[in-house]
């Protein structure tokens, strides 16, 4: 099913990651093998503590694997980070309270040395993209949680990194807002061709968004199933009632359940 044009962006081979804690070592990732291609939308799903966040953080060079190899665009994650390959959206918005919304979105652009004019232009563009035009001058604490999360997505989009890593970005939002943002993310992905890594606890969300679903299981965290989605790239919300959709969701659920039985 591989598209000929697509080439590997993220490659993990025999990846292990062990945290040394006061209560002894915790194996967060065990023998993880995964290839993510250019333009893939990959969801990570699995029970709490199975290493989803750790894997995403390792890709962004925020954690360092204990053994195995991990490359991003053919280089080590640290090197890719220096070349500003990532936009990262954390589970909480993590906006800086002393900066306005526009100031927060501008921050990575300031750090990367964009010109003043380009900062303004890009900030306005991504604010519009997440439907926050007119809120640029507000401070984060003056916005609702959902709006703050959208602002943090705008911030990750502002500098046009090729890889967008999102760790349960919509976990705290209500169903309706979540649906809307899911549609927005899909549109954005279709328009920009970015490679997206997306952590979620929701089976429908994973199936709706992804071209590839990675099912993980805990203790030690490992991959139990990788599902390449047969769904078309164009996905209206009501695709969730189709038979194909329900079949994939079923397979994901089975994968999660099997992981649980190994315990």
């Amino acid at each position: 099913m591989k598209d000929k044009a697509s080439q590997p962006v993220i490659e993990a081979r025999g990846l292990n990651l062990v945290f040394q804690t006061a209560d002894g070592p915790v194996q967060a990732l065990k023998d993880v093998n995964l290839t993510i291609n250019q333009g893939d939308f990959v969801s990570f799903i699995g029970p709490s503590g199975c290493g989803k966040t750790t894997f995403l953080r390792a890709i962004a060079a925020l954690e360092h694997p204990t053994s195995g190899t991990l490359t991003v665009n053919g280089m080590p994650p640290d090197e890719a980070r220096r070349r500003r390959a990532y936009g990262y959206v954390f589970q909480a918005a993590g906006l800086y309270p002393w900066r306005t919304i526009a100031g927060n979105i501008r921050l990575p652009l300031e750090i990367m040395g964009f010109s003043r004019a380009e900062q303004d232009e890009r900030t306005a563009r991504v604010l519009d993209l997440v439907e926050l035009t007119g809120f640029g001058k507000k401070f984060p604490w003056q916005l609702s949680g959902g709006m703050q999360q959208r602002a943090s997505i705008a911030r990750a989009l502002a500098f046009d990194a090729d890889i967008l890593l999102m760790d349960e970005p919509f976990g705290a939002l209500d169903e309706i807002v979540r649906d809307r943002l899911n549609e927005e993310v899909l549109k954005l992905w279709a328009r920009t061709g970015k490679t997206i890594g997306f952590v979620t606890h929701s089976i429908p969300e994973a199936v709706y968004l992804s071209t590839k679903i990675v099912v993980m299981s805990p203790r030690p965290g490992r991959i139990t199933d990788v599902i390449d989605s047969p769904l078309p790239k164009e996905r209206p919300l009501d695709i969730r009632d189709s038979r194909e959709f329900i079949e994939i969701a079923h397979r994901v659920r089975e994968g999660l359940r099997a992981g649980h039985h190994d315990d």
Partner: peptide, 17 residues
């Protein structure tokens, strides 16, 4: 906060920045 510092790291910010 750790997340705030992690963000800086993902943007490749220097120590002074």
């Amino acid at each position: 906060e750790r997340m705030q510092r992690d963000l800086m790291a993902t943007w490749g910010a220097s120590y002074v920045q």
